[in-house]
């Protein structure tokens, strides 16, 4: 007879069980709330940045009246609430205000940079996801052996090395030493898709290193859990061939949680792009944020940071939806 050690939990879990549909709606609303909070944080962060905006654009020698005029023109002399509402209402309509540095709308810059970054991220992902999963599953199946230890420790070490370190070593090795790859990520104008991908290969490697360890570790943990589970025992003791046990019973359960990890890492990878794009002189969202921060171009910085947050929230939301759709436990409740 079952009686929860927590007492009363048996009754409560029943009471708290809500349908998956309402869970999804809740999840969606929470994402929106998160984005709202994020936008306030980003805006508030922008206000913390030092100095007088007009002054920092015009320089220390500029005339006091010119500074005041510019501040008025930029709207930076209004109350913070008004400025925030103005900024966010324009932002959601795709109008991301005007760059201080370029004196032109921010949106086209951010759009182009995001597209470039997504290309780079896509190349890295196509390489790392299969590699990481295969490595993790292999390590789990060879648990405790040298293969397992090599994959685990290599993955672990690769994960913690800063991208600029691995990037520089790669550049020294393949760019300068062996001359296999160009040292920049930007293909010459007019080159085809394949050339573009070729230019993106070397820059994607540090990202691959960074992510391989995470994905492999999750895949390994998931596979080991599934291998040790009672249902795998049932499958083996049915007399199923090992191959079928793995494909039908182990992997299906083992890799489901990996989806969420891959997604959250996809979000974080955008952060890694700051360094890679600077190192390989690539016009992406990372280098845009970096340049804007160093140049105190706040509208550009705020827009870039908010877009990064948006991408992260969107990707994790998509992963949660995929997880729900693939998990029969949740999918069943949806009916």
């Amino acid at each position: 007879m079952k009686l929860s050690a927590r007492g009363g939990a048996d009754d409560r879990s029943l009471a708290q069980e809500t349908s998956t549909l309402s869970f999804l709606i809740r999840r969606l609303l929470l994402s929106l709330v998160t984005l709202g909070v994020l936008s306030i944080l980003v805006f508030a962060g922008g206000q913390l940045l030092p100095g007088d905006v007009g002054r920092s654009i015009l320089g220390p020698l500029a005339d006091e009246r010119a500074v005041a005029a510019l501040n008025h023109q930029l709207g930076t002399d209004r109350s913070l609430t008004v400025q925030y509402l103005d900024w966010i209402s324009h932002f959601v309509r795709g109008d991301m205000s005007t760059s201080y540095a370029f004196r032109s709308p921010v949106a086209p810059f951010v759009g182009a940079a995001l597209a470039n970054s997504l290309k780079l991220a896509a190349v890295a992902f196509v390489i790392v996801v299969p590699l990481g999963i295969a490595g993790g599953v292999l390590a789990a199946m060879k648990r405790g052996t040298a293969t397992d230890r090599i994959i685990t420790i290599t993955g672990l070490s690769a994960t913690v090395i800063p991208e600029f370190v691995s990037g520089i070593i790669l550049i020294l090795l393949f760019g300068i030493g062996l001359r296999l790859f160009p040292m920049t990520a930007t293909a010459p104008p007019g080159s085809g898709v394949l050339t573009g991908i070729y230019y993106l290969l070397l820059p994607s490697f540090p990202l691959v290193f960074l992510l391989f360890g995470y994905i492999a570790r999750m895949a390994r943990a998931g596979t080991i859990e599934a291998l040790d589970s009672d249902y795998t025992r049932t499958a083996v003791l049915k007399g199923l061939p090992w191959r079928l046990v793995i494909w039908r019973h182990v992997l299906r359960n083992a890799l489901l949680p990996t989806i969420t990890v891959v997604a959250s890492q996809a979000g974080y990878m955008i952060g890694g792009l700051v360094v890679i794009e600077t190192l390989f002189r690539y016009q992406g969202i990372g280098s845009l944020i970096y340049t804007a921060a160093r140049g105190h171009d706040f509208p550009m910085l705020e827009a870039g940071v908010l877009v990064v947050g948006l991408v992260y929230v969107a990707v994790t939301l998509a992963a949660d939806l995929a997880y729900t759709a693939l998990n029969p436990r949740l999918r069943g409740a949806l009916r």
Binding site: L30, V33, T34, L35, V37, L38, L41, G45, L49, G267, Y268, I270, G271, G272, V274, V275, I289, Y290, A293, R294, H296, L301, V305, V308, G309, Y312, V313
Partner: peptide, 20 residues
């Protein structure tokens, strides 16, 4: 909610903005 919002930003970008 607050933590989730902050975690939507990569650590490096957070630190970069804060140090700026």
């Amino acid at each position: 909610r607050l933590i989730e919002a902050v975690l939507a930003l990569p650590l490096l970008i957070l630190a970069l903005v804060a140090l700026t």
